[in-house]
Design a protein around this nucleic acid. Structure first.
Length: 496
RNA sequence: GGCGCUAUCGUCUAACGGUUAGGACAUCGCCCUCUCAAGGCGGUAAUACGGGUUCGAUUCCCGUUAGCGCUACCA
């Protein structure tokens, strides 16, 4: 009976929505749901709708709304229409009364039951409050008029052998016996709509064609189908996404897993939004052709509901982590490093500069532009710039162990000899540029009868304070003659 | 407890019923090399278990086990 209209909506430009409830920060699972909806809309020339599902006044917070927008803004994908459920309550109630009028809902005057019965010994599921369902309409109306509070419940067609069905784009044909569904609430006793009602009423009103959401809603969908049919509407196309789970196997939650599940944590650690999006897309979806590092445009072109799989995906992270990098899923970090390397120097430099300045270093645009190519292949997260290039930013090097100056198979004497020679060579008329420095320093090594590595290491440590660093000549060129010589001088005095 | 969903290397995944079960990350080794990276090459590593169906099951069916989800006047 509903085949025709749902078939039609599938051929029209799709309308999809992301509907977070503002009860905490935007977490990675929600972000992925947003991204999949967005990708589906953009791939099919449809409309992306953002709807704040804020009917739970008790738990909603303004900070949460702000935090969700903050996360979405960083993703930088945008949306076409925006709604707030709390401003649409009348619409929801209207649908509730329609269902009541049809006799498909009833008033339940029993006080809210506090989910205690099922824990202790209670067999099976709670299905309805005894007596409430059988109350006559006259009696029900009378008590309501008298001002007695009630919740409005859906009258699930139990005992009729009816089976509720829908077809999921990801999980296939779904069926559940009405006997196994409890009389869920539509309206709370304070008159506020429940999630199920509000969601269905809004989806109808906003003409949502495809509901793409987490699999935790799969079993709720039977209730939604019931509501929609009772109100006289054809259900949209459903597509449920496999859940993102923590390394411990449980659904990601802010409560259990902390800030690592917050989108802003990734942002603050120095992920590129594109890499983060890319990573999330690969969780529960595959382009089926072994492509992994993809641009937003490529993701958009390749995206389809058919590519979504059915099993939960683990997001790896370590909560107490030694370094920021260890905290995140290695694949996410790799993708980020990969995309950083793919950035043009100017683009990367522009992203790096604010981070460097926020850390208190006064660095010019020009200087940053010189430094960037030296660290582009050495950083995985944008914030790594602070540890990878710190010696470029400071006037004086922080203290380091002079023993580091000693080269392989050498001793302090050799280090000293090298540095004195370096002071001489670099202090002379050599141009501070790669090739010239290369020639001069290699010649010096030969003169001293040393291997190139033995020559370079003391100089490297002297100018940057550590063994692992960008290539020496490039580094000296950026540091400049004055700073380089100052630091070599200091190293010499430390060895003497 | 009831109902539902899921099950391929450590992780993310690929494989119209016929493949030496492929790729990526991670890991290990080698090469390149002024260190560190990056890059190149190679290695280790998987179809949860038991029954069917079939000439032939990772693939289809049933069962077991395990995990997850839902079971609120939360969403």
């Amino acid at each position: 009976m509903t085949k025709i209209s749902s078939g039609m909506s599938a051929t029209l430009a799709p309308r999809v929505r992301f509907a977070p409830s503002p009860t905490g920060f935007l977490h990675v699972g929600s972000a992925r749901t947003f991204i999949f909806n967005w990708l589906y809309a953009r791939h099919n020339g449809g409309t992306m709708i953002l709807r704040l599902d804020d009917t739970d006044v008790e738990r909603n917070t303004e900070e949460s709304v702000e935090s969700i927008f903050e996360g979405l803004r960083w993703l930088n994908l945008g949306w076409d229409e925006e709604y707030k459920q709390s401003e649409r309550i009348e619409l929801h109630r209207k649908m509730a009364w329609t269902i009541l009028e049809k006799g498909l809902a009833y008033r339940d005057f029993t006080p809210a039951h506090a989910g205690d019965a099922e824990k202790s010994g209670g067999q099976g599921t709670w299905l309805c409050s005894p007596g409430a369902r059988e109350l006559s309409r006259e009696e029900s109306d009378r008590r309501a008029r008298a001002g007695e509070p009630f919740a409005l419940r859906f009258r699930v067609p139990r005992g009729t052998g009816q089976v509720v069905r829908f077809s999921d784009a990801v999980y296939g044909e779904q069926a559940k016996e009405a006997d196994d569904i409890e009389d869920f609430a539509l309206l709370r006793s304070d008159g506020m709509p429940t999630y199920h009602l509000a969601s269905c009423a809004d989806d109808v009103d906003l003409r949502i064609s495809h509901i793409i959401r987490g699999q935790d809603h799969l079993t709720n969908t039977f209730k939604h189908v019931l509501i929609l049919e009772a109100a006289g509407y054809a259900p949209p196309q459903f597509a449920h996404l496999p859940l993102l789970v923590a390394p411990d196997g449980t659904k990601l939650s802010k409560r259990r897993h902390g800030p690592v599940v917050s989108v802003t944590t990734y942002r603050d650690a120095g992920f590129l939004p594109g890499a983060f999006i890319n990573f999330l897309c690969l969780l529960g979806w595959s382009p089926k052709n072994d492509r992994e590092n993809m641009s937003l445009r490529e993701l958009q072109d390749a995206f389809s509901l058919e590519g979504i799989n059915r099993s939960n995906a683990v997001v790896n992270f370590k909560e107490p982590a030694a370094t920021a990098e260890e905290m995140f899923d290695p694949k996410a970090v790799w993708l980020n490093a990969e995309q950083i390397r793919g950035l043009r120097v100017e683009d990367l430099s522009t992203r790096l500069l604010p981070i460097v300045r926020a850390a208190g270093y006064d660095v010019s645009v020009e200087k940053m532009l010189q430094i960037t190519p030296l660290i582009r292949e050495r950083i995985k997260l944008l914030r790594d710039v602070l540890t990878a290039a710190d010696f470029f930013f400071v006037k004086e090097l922080p203290p380091y162990d002079p023993a580091e100056l000693i080269p392989q198979k050498g001793d302090a004497g050799m280090a000293l000899k090298v540095l004195i020679k370096a002071r001489e060579v670099l202090g002379a008329n050599v141009e501070f540029e790669h090739d010239a420095l290369d020639h001069a320093l290699r010649a010096a090594a030969q003169e001293l009868g040393l291997k190139a590595g033995q020559m370079f290491q003391p100089i490297r440590v002297a100018v940057c304070g550590r063994k692992n660093a960008p290539p020496l000549f490039e580094m000296l060129a950026v540091l400049g003659k004055e700073t380089s010589l100052e630091r070599i001088e200091k190293a010499i005095s430390q060895l003497a």
